[in-house]
Simulated assay, not measured.
Amino acid sequence: MQMIDLMEQALRLGELPRELAELAQEIDQVRAGKIARPVREIVPLGIRVHTLSIRCLTQLDTLAGSQYAAMKEGAEALADMAETVLGVAFAAGTCTQAITDRTNVLTHEAADQTASTARERLGEASEELRQVADVYREFSQRLTVRLVTPAARIEDGRLIARALDRPAATPVPPALPSKPAPLSGPRR
C-alpha cells in the first residue's frame, strides 16, 4: 500500500466535474452545428475525452493502490469509481463513433446525409459526461468530508493501520531445523 496525499486526490477529483461539464457543453455546440467537417470538429473533442478517460483511470489506479482502499467504504467507492471511469470511456468511444457515422457520408451513398446519427451519438456522449461529472462531484465531496472530520480521520487511521499490519495472505511456515532436536526424556 502506498501512502499518498488524499487531500490532493480529493482536489483532483473535484476538478473533474468542471472539465467534464465543459467538454459536454463543447460537444453540444458541435452537435448543434452542421457537422460538415467531422474530423476537424469532433476529433479534437474525442481526443480530449479519451485523454480525460486515461486520467480518470490513472487516478483510480493511484487510489486503489493507496490507503484509500483501506478507509471506510473505500473499496466500495473504488468499485463505483471504476464504473464512472467506464462512463468517461464510453463517452470517448461514442465521440469516435460519431466521427465514423458522419464520415460515412463521404464513402457510402446510403449514409445519413443529415448528420442525425452523429448528432445522436454526440448527445449520448454529452449526457454521459454530465452524469459522470455529478458522480465525480460526489466522490470528491465524500472524500473531503472524511478527511476533515476528526472522528472519520480517527476511524480511517485505525482501518489503515490495521491494513498495514495485516499478515501476509499465506503465512510462511517456520524454517525447519538443520538437524533434529534432541529428544527429551527417557528412551525406551
Results as ranks from 00 to 15, higher is better:
Ile27Cys: 06
Arg40Tyr: 01
Leu63Glu: 05
Ala24Trp: 07
Met71Asp: 00
Val105Leu: 14
Thr84Cys: 03
Gly87Arg: 12
Ile54Asp: 10
Arg119Val: 10
Thr84Arg: 04
Arg121His: 14
Val105His: 07
Val39Gly: 00
Thr100Met: 15
Glu83Lys: 12
Val49Asn: 01
Leu63Thr: 08
Thr114Asp: 06
Ala32Arg: 14
Arg37Val: 08
Thr62Cys: 01
Ala92Asn: 04
Gln25Arg: 15
Ala89Ser: 08
Arg121Pro: 00
Arg48Lys: 12
Glu83Gln: 12
Arg121Glu: 02
Arg48Gly: 00
Ala118Cys: 02
Leu52Gln: 02
Gly123Tyr: 13
Glu73Arg: 05
Glu26Arg: 15
Gly74Thr: 06
Glu73Gly: 03
Asp112Val: 12
Ala110Asp: 04
Leu52Cys: 02
Leu122Ser: 01
Val88Gln: 04
Ala89Val: 06
Gln113Tyr: 08
Gln67Asn: 09
Glu26Gly: 11
Ala79Ser: 11
Glu83Ser: 11
Gln25Pro: 00
Asn104Tyr: 06
Ala82Lys: 15
Ser116His: 10
Tyr68Asn: 07
Ser53Leu: 08
Ser66Val: 02
Ala92Gly: 10
Gly46Asn: 08
Leu60Asn: 03
Ser66Thr: 04
Arg37Leu: 13
Val43Gly: 00
Arg37Lys: 15
Ile99Leu: 09
Ala77Ile: 09
Met71Cys: 12
Met81Gln: 14
Ala91Tyr: 06
Thr51Asn: 11
Glu76Leu: 12
Gly93Met: 05
Leu78Pro: 00
Leu78Ala: 01
Ala70Glu: 01
Gly123Gln: 05
Ala111Ile: 10
Gly123Asp: 11
Lys34Tyr: 04
Thr51Leu: 11
Ala69Thr: 05
Ile35Gln: 04
Gln29Leu: 13
Ile42Tyr: 06
Cys95Ala: 06
Arg55Glu: 15
Glu120Phe: 13
Ala89Tyr: 04
Leu63Arg: 10
Thr114Asn: 12
Ala89His: 08
Leu45Lys: 06
Leu60Asp: 02
Thr117Tyr: 06
Thr114Gly: 07
Gly87Ser: 11
Pro44Glu: 02
Leu45Ser: 00
Ile47Phe: 09
Gly74Tyr: 07
Ala89Pro: 03
Leu52Thr: 03
Ala69Asn: 06
Leu122His: 11
Ala64Met: 10
Thr100Gly: 02
Cys95Pro: 03
Asp112Thr: 08
